[in-house]
Simulated scan of single mutants.
Amino acid sequence: MRLRLLLCVLCWLGTTPALAAENSRVLTTIKPLQQIAAAVMKDIDTPALLMEPGASPHSYALRPSDRRALAEAERIYWIGPELELFLQDLLERQDSAVDLLHLPQMAVRKQQQAHNFQKDEHASHAHGHEHDHGSLDAHIWLSPDNAKVVARYMAEDLASVYPQHVDQLQANLAVFERSLTALDDRLQVRLSPLRDKPYFVFHDGYGYFEDHYGVKPQGIFSLSHEVQPGARHVNQLRQQLQAAGPSCVFTEPQFTPRLVNSLTQGLPVTVGVLDPLGSAIDVGPKGYEHMLEDMSGALADCLEAL
């Protein structure tokens, strides 16, 4: 009897997120978009998340419950096929879906691949996929200015979904913009002295953030968390790190310690973690700000200690 009860509880816990998504009027594909939507929709409704924290938008496989949630949502916010390619055929035929990367007001940049490092056959799968050189950079949410563009669009767009809450949507937008501007000012002050500090990242996913705050990586390591790189490639990258001297190497939650350790062992580097999707950050009205502050803090903490 107890076993059956436990199984029922586990089954219910396992299906709750899908049911929540299916019953939601507003659905976002990645967590940063959900966080921005939550700020705009404060005291009105709660946006749902298609991909659970930790899932990669580059390799996600839709479940039947995901398809139902997408079919039933009144509004779907996604970046676009440059990030969530698996949704392209489905969402480009759906009137309720909004491709945010191509909003007229969005400031976009080109993707810069790690062309300054020689790569072997194991080195072309950064971030679970290979960027086409010169394609649009899809990581738009890492610019506070672009986050405000997204929030403004949502506040206007959701007026048709929640016509009785138009004033509340605009009031929430104003609060979000003021609070984000204040945070941005604080981050500018902290990051400004660190612009010449050397650091390395594992894929070109931080360009919007780096352009906004004036920091720049000394190198981009085009490595995959899915495929262990060859010894020749590791030695090439280790030589780059050794030449840089004391520096920071920023990995991401999906990279295994073995991969990072094989690259940095015995070198004068400090390893940190950057999470551009804010996997462990809350989803409340302050969630986006917490994600931005957490990532900025991880970068600054390491660079300030050099």
Rank of each mutant, 00 (worst) to 15 (best):
R186N: 13
V175M: 02
D301Y: 04
D145W: 13
Q118K: 07
H225F: 13
G266I: 03
L241W: 04
G214Q: 06
A55S: 14
Q35K: 08
V215L: 04
Q111K: 14
Q242T: 12
L7V: 08
Q118T: 07
V227R: 11
A159H: 00
S279T: 12
L263V: 04
Y199V: 00
Y199S: 00
K119V: 09
K110Q: 14
V175D: 08
L142H: 02
L194C: 01
R25K: 15
P253D: 02
A159I: 00
K31I: 09
R152V: 06
C8I: 10
M41V: 05
V271K: 00
T251F: 08
R25S: 15
A69D: 05
K286A: 15
C302Y: 05
V283T: 15
L241H: 04
Q188H: 14
L194T: 01
P57A: 13
A38K: 08
E84T: 09
S56F: 10
P253Y: 02
E74Q: 15
S222C: 02
V98S: 04
T264C: 03
A114F: 06
T46L: 11
F255E: 03
A69F: 09
A69Q: 08
S192Q: 14
P246G: 06
P144R: 09
R2M: 05
Y60T: 10
D275F: 09
R109P: 02
D167T: 14
S262R: 10
E177F: 03
I30E: 15
H139Y: 10
F221H: 04
L83W: 12
E74G: 15
Y77S: 00
D185N: 12
A174C: 06
S224E: 03
P32Q: 09
V273I: 13
D185P: 00
L306P: 04
I281Y: 09
R195E: 05
A107R: 15
L173M: 10
Q111E: 13
G54Y: 11
P198V: 01
H290K: 14
S224M: 06
P193I: 02
L263W: 08
L277A: 13
L241R: 00
H203Y: 02
H233F: 05
L85F: 14
I36Y: 11
G230L: 04
L306S: 04
T16D: 06
D211I: 00
V260D: 08
L70Q: 03
L100F: 03
A18K: 09
M1A: 11
K31Y: 10
H290S: 13
A48Q: 01
G54F: 09
G205H: 07
L267V: 00
L136H: 10
L169K: 09
A18M: 10
L50N: 03
L103A: 02
P32V: 06
A69M: 08
E226R: 04
G219E: 04
Q112T: 11
A159G: 09
S179Q: 14
L194R: 00
V175G: 01
M51Q: 11
M291W: 07
I140E: 02
T28V: 08
A243G: 07
A244R: 02
A71G: 12
R152L: 07
I76N: 01
P285R: 14
F209L: 09
H165S: 10
A21I: 11
L223K: 05
G278F: 12
S179A: 12
A107H: 15
Y60V: 11
V189K: 15
T29I: 14
L19I: 07
A97H: 07
Q112H: 14
A20T: 03
D185R: 15
C8W: 13
I30G: 13
S247V: 04
